[in-house]
Simulated assay, not measured.
Amino acid sequence: MTSLTKSRIRWADLPAPVRAAVEEILGDRVVAAESQHGGFSPGTADRVRTAGGGRAFVKAVSPAQNDRSPALHRAEARVAATPAAPAPRLLGCHDDGDWIALVFTDVEGRHPATPWEAGELAAVLSTLEAMAAVLTPAPAAVATTATEHLGHDFGGWRRIAADPPADLDGWARARLTELCAAADRGLAALTGDTLCHVDIRADNLLVGPDGAVSVVDWPWACRGPAWLDSLLALVNVQVHGGHDPEALLAALPLAAGVDPADLTGVLAGFTGFFLDGARQPPPPGIPTVRAFQRLQGDALLPWLARRMG
């Protein structure tokens, strides 16, 4: 998986009072912990086992690893109170103002294969469609809209236009004005009252032994259109390969009736966000995220060019 976090701390690195707080939530002593790969948080991501044989998933972080990560964990704790999502159940949360630890049920499963395999992709898209239905309307606890959440991100093309990098793709360089306008249209299209995950990627999905799909890592959740998460799944298909995302989009039930220019605009917004983000210094404790943003931006450009002509 391209998005491996190479600097992640582990269960044993947590301060003793934090480990004790987690064990209190579990009601038992942790005797084994296995760090999980994927994602970009520099905090822990451990499957733990207790003395009595119980299992759970623990993620914990403090500002010492990354100053933004604790706020994301707190946001995820609020979203995790929504029981309808196909996500691991939050067993408890420890927050001492410095360290925050989330304790979830341990979901047996693995990330979907990439390049994407047809059966797993179908299961994921079916899950996202069902999830959108269940999570509309969004719970009152989530007030942030996708337009608010992605407002700065979708300004990526304007920042690129103000200071174009030397290696900017020629097609994009010749169409910066159009790309800025398309991203603006995409941002305006992000209205809706569905609870959206907004970070759908293979490494935020788990496929269980029975084929059931669980969606993990919800810190970016917000209110938006029912089709947004499904579109982001197709973005990940474009990044990793295996299928034609344009054909998949044409057959996507949730996108039926959506103005194609709105969908193109959202793709433009994410492409600009990835390419602009990729040229920024890496955030503390997350050295690999810029390379992954560049990978995504470069992968999306051909699809965007195909749609814009």
Rank of each mutant, 00 (worst) to 15 (best):
L26C: 04
E24C: 01
R78F: 01
D276N: 15
F274P: 09
V216D: 15
G54E: 07
P42M: 04
D229G: 09
L91Y: 04
L263G: 08
T191F: 10
P112N: 13
D67N: 10
P83M: 10
R110T: 15
A161P: 06
P42L: 01
I200F: 10
S230H: 13
T105K: 12
G151T: 01
G170Q: 02
A33L: 01
A305H: 01
V107D: 15
F292W: 14
P137H: 07
D184E: 15
A32W: 03
P42Y: 03
T136Y: 07
L301W: 00
P283A: 10
Q238N: 03
Q36P: 01
V22L: 00
G224S: 14
V258M: 12
E246D: 12
T105A: 15
R55T: 13
G92S: 01
L248F: 03
A172V: 01
D167F: 03
I9E: 05
P302F: 02
E246A: 04
L72H: 06
G97N: 06
L125R: 15
L206G: 13
G224N: 13
A130F: 07
G119T: 14
A21P: 06
W220V: 13
R290G: 14
S41K: 00
G277S: 15
F273A: 14
A174M: 01
I100P: 04
A162D: 07
R175L: 02
A45C: 10
A256D: 14
P15R: 02
Q280W: 06
E117P: 09
P225R: 11
G277R: 12
S69I: 08
